[in-house]
Design a protein around this nucleic acid. Structure first.
Lengths: 360, 360
DNA sequence: GACGGTGCAGAAAACGTTTACGGAGAAGCC
DNA sequence: GGCTTCTCCGTAAACGTTTTCTGCACCGTC
């Protein structure tokens, strides 16, 4: 209220206004605010004073138009309502801001038209680079972004071209830990509930599961390798289907945490108990995993690591940063309360729905 | 791959290129793609043909620079990791896109510096309007956005000025339903766990609770009016504090769903059961509410309605749409499984931690 | 047949920056 | 002291659009 003393007619403050007030040219103003070192300290001081007094800030559009850089990173994810992605977005944004970039968000919702629109928006707004964590977008990106010469990083496992890189994740480590943990508890019949297998990261988790089972000397039964959708509903539906079959596993490993929560719900509805009747392992370790009832044992993949690697790679491709070591993002098991020893006769639970005391 | 036949050197297609190929002036190209009706159909056809062939799309920045409209709406929320907001964001974006706008997202994380930065970003990118659902931002917005002449809509209960409007929500309806539901089940001792009271919407929910209690002839005890943070951790912590006090309520109404999930977790940790030992009501009806164990009784406030009203108001302020009826966004109770009759002696549960059969 | 009106395309001026370029002055060298 | 070299500022040309304004052609009217 008392602040806008002389900047009352301030709706139109541009670089010219600042130049006039500081009694320098607009070029000097530009150089000053862009921290070009060759400007005389005395003039710079006058410029900053004028900037402050007039409450000036540069017009991003004009700046982008002439410099060719928008200082914008695109981030394309599958679905913003899956809690893992907001956590990733938050990290991604925080790190981007540290490097002077902002983010333009796009979610595909697993829909071809929306995906197409996403890519188009990114091109129209002239993003300087784009990070992708979804599927079904590869050919679009390669056709269009390469033409536009836009660096692309896939999280994870995308095509590798001169314009695109991949952040790899060490799925094997965490999933092997999970299988070993279950095996140590006495489980032998373990099912895997994957995400949509068209999605590279879902396929990779599925493969890691199969390998870990083999290493542990356990057999994977095909009917216990289910394809889900990485959603709450998908987890619930898949579990309900499995409950209709004759033979049940004693443990279920899920490709992400929301799928596991969906499974928990299906079991609750069927009056089955976790971990007494079924042990359950998730993947991602979203913040919510700590708050499910009971708290979810899960494989942690730090969204911060992902975001860090993605932006580092992007900056490197833009020539702004040195090549960072391309070590895969690590994963590891977090044991909470959805895993326990299997019942000696698992199918007994089916009819009774009895409770056993909550472990602690 | 086969598509880019002659657009190989296509990285630099601008309006001039299209004009040359269609043998018209750039003004005609501009008019055509902006659907100005005074262009000759024959020429328009040639232009569209050239656009297709060259895979042309306009440069958003140049367009915004000269036209003064960025076709961008800002959306400022508290915290993207609270699942309610992604749902809102998704709806908001979908509706914005329908009207030819995109959204620029900002989250304040309840932090003054981040809030300041948010506002600045919105101004720099020259958003055409901004919708706000957080707190502590009002004076910033009024000082800065009014200068920039940017329409602002608060969801809900913000200051009312020539430049800003408010989307109101009928909190009373849903919360009254909740209290009546609990009273009918036999509850008299009902606590309220609010969000941060600096936030208007949190304060409004708290007020609605007090009024509903009074209408139902129940007394609200001050020590049962707790202030939370609208987060998982906040809900858990508040409940843990309450469990240390001497006298417990039999039911708890929470100001949002994640708070309720936090409460559920605290009760689980303390070996107390929902709804046997405590009935629990949330607010928002996020998708996840259906998946908690047991599924959460909650007051539904449709994020779609909020988004719809916010964008409608924004368009109206921009003169693009007619004044829509300003009816408050409705709320209503969704009964699931976290509410039931209170035990005759609630404190009995404290020591035993016994189970009773799950209701259905 | 001259004249005013109308319809529609093109020329050119913005929009607010960055940056290549030229030039003025100071400083260094012989 | 004159020459070159170096600093650092200002002028002006971009960047890719939209939009105003001008002008041409065509039409109907008297």
């Amino acid at each position: 209220m008392s602040r806008s003393t002389k900047s009352a007619a301030s709706s139109k403050i541009d670089i010219r206004g600042v130049a006039a007030r500081a009694r320098v040219s607009i070029a000097t103003v530009s150089r000053t605010i862009n921290h070009v070192p060759t400007v005389d300290p005395a003039l710079a001081k006058r410029v900053w004073k004028a900037v402050k007094e007039l409450n000036y800030f540069p017009n991003t559009q004009a700046r982008a138009l002439v410099s060719g850089r928008s200082r914008l990173f695109g981030l394309i994810v599958s679905e913003i309502t899956n809690p893992f992605f907001p956590e990733l977005i938050q990290q991604f944004e925080a790190i981007a801001v540290q490097h002077g970039y902002e983010i333009l968000l796009g979610s595909t919702s697993y829909d071809a038209a929306k995906t197409e629109q996403c890519v188009r928006r990114m091109l129209e707004r002239k993003v300087d680079g784009v990070a992708v964590m979804t599927f079904g977008i590869e050919e679009l990106l390669l056709n269009r972004f390469e033409e536009g010469d836009i660096p692309t990083v896939f999280i994870d496992l995308g095509p590798s071209t001169p314009h695109s890189r991949t952040i790899s994740v060490d799925y094997q480590q965490g999933i092997t830990e999970a299988i070993q943990h279950l095996a140590a508890l006495g489980h032998r019949d373990i099912a895997f509930l994957s995400g949509p297998l068209r999605m590279h990261s879902a396929q990779a988790r599925s493969d890691a599961f199969a390998r870990a089972m083999q290493q542990a000397g356990l057999v994977t039964r095909p009917e216990w390798m289910l394809e889900g959708t990485h959603t709450l509903d998908g987890g619930r539906d898949a579990m309900q289907r499995m409950l209709k079959t004759r033979r049940w596993p004693t443990a279920i490993v899920c490709s992400n945490d929301v799928t596991a929560i969906g499974v928990q719900h299906a079991l609750f509805d069927a009056r089955l108990r976790v971990p007494e009747d079924f042990s359950l392992v998730g993947f991602d370790d979203i913040h919510l995993a700590e708050y499910t009832i009971p708290p979810l044992t899960t494989v942690r993949m730090a969204s911060e690591d992902l975001a860090h690697a993605a932006i580092g790679t992007l900056l490197e491709m833009l020539g702004t940063a040195e090549a960072a070591a391309g070590t895969p993002v690590p994963t590891h098991l977090i044991v909470r309360q959805t895993t326990g020893s299997p019942r000696t006769n698992a199918t007994a639970a089916r009819a009774t729905g009895r409770k056993s005391p909550v472990k602690h």
